[in-house]
Design a protein around this nucleic acid. Structure first.
Lengths: 214, 214
DNA sequence: GTCTATATGTAGATAGAC
DNA sequence: GTCTATCTACATATAGAC
């Protein structure tokens, strides 16, 4: 604990470029494996193989399997929340300021990010695993509840007649449908034969907006 | 393989009452544990403890972990599909024959069954785990696709203007929202403060019907 | 069919050389 | 920080007594 260097984010010490690259490779590999097999189905050895690193390195950077999982979930949560809130603020400037814009501000950022960096697709699948397992409700709430509440307030102001419970229900339906679109794109194609990807996001926004009563 | 008795369902041999009860206890316990922790998070020992049976008995009746998982998923699938198709046929007799009735016929049976037997709630959580993990897409398709296609045809006939892809999208959104309502009832309460359970199912049907454009 | 004891593999984690 | 070798625990599965 001696000789610690004060960095902007209060991290332990300054990491070399090489070390930082290794960290990122470890986290990216963990993200992929966790997203594919879930927490229990993933093994440190799988992650090590995917990262092209020895097993010990995964523990060194990850600090144990559960800590690694937490880190990987947390890593992109802040970026995603920021993007959503910025998109929400942008709607305040726009004229119509309708329900669709609010839902779009919540839904679109994830797909926009996924388009420019496919690792966001893995992240979304990981979040889907998190959302289905009671064991991770704590960390899900920690990372996503603040933004959820902001959007629910916004929805409430657009739909003053709806009870808080109905807003909450609709919001949960919306989130689950969004995750389903990410994780089941292949299944949708299999069922429907269609192909257009970006159009589906429009359809999702329209579906949920209509569901809320717009 | 000798001395096999031909039963209605081509099962191996006639089982004693005692044995059948043990089987059911094993499957119920497996259902609960798999629904709580997923396939990889569950252990045969957990299941044995929950069933009040020794570890060997789980293997004897289950035939290995993966076979047991398959059996447990399959066990209630037929009942659920039957209930859904019967509910769908019942709507053909009714006058208005609207989109809501079709969606209701798909959604309601699960909640009706869960109300009279809480083990259906576990089953729904298990299906949620199945739906999120690519590893189980085969068995999900095997058990649920035939009914899914029937309902999609019915939806298509009510919404002739929509493309097959949009029907498929809306159906996936609907299924995910339905599973979210089962698995996130607590979360919805936490977010919204509300309580009424049966009302939520009405809200879900309304949400999806509106989403489809009704 | 039921239960005990055990075989075998592989998981997460760590100690210590480099 | 990186990597090898190893410790310990617990998983699935089975063999065989009852």
């Amino acid at each position: 604990m001696s000789n610690s260097q004060a960095t902007g984010k209060m991290r332990k010490r300054a990491l070399s470029e090489r070390a930082k690259q290794t960290r990122e490779r470890v986290f990216d590999a963990a993200e992929t494996i966790f997203a594919t097999r879930g927490f229990d189905g993933a093994t440190i050895r799988d992650i090590a193989a995917a990262a092209g690193e020895p097993v010990g390195t995964i523990h060194h950077h990850g600090g144990g399997k559960e800590a690694l999982f937490n880190t990987v979930v947390a890593r992109r949560a802040e970026t995603l929340s920021q993007a959503r809130l910025e998109a929400l603020e942008a709607t305040w400037a726009s004229k119509p300021m309708d329900l669709r814009s609010v839902l779009s501000a919540f839904i679109r950022p994830l797909f926009d990010l996924a388009e420019e960096d496919p690792r966001w697709q893995n992240y979304a699948k990981l979040v889907a695993f998190v959302s289905v397992d009671d064991r991770w409700t704590e960390i899900a709430a920690q990372h996503f509840d603040p933004t959820a509440h902001k959007f629910m307030e916004e929805l409430q102001s657009h739909l003053p007649k709806l009870s808080r419970q109905r807003i909450a229900e609709g919001f949960v339906f919306t989130v689950s449908a969004m995750l389903a679109l990410v994780t089941s794109e292949r299944r949708i194609s299999a069922l429907g034969g269609g192909t257009s990807h970006t159009a589906s996001v429009d359809h999702l926004v329209a579906f949920c907006a209509a569901g809320f009563g717009d």
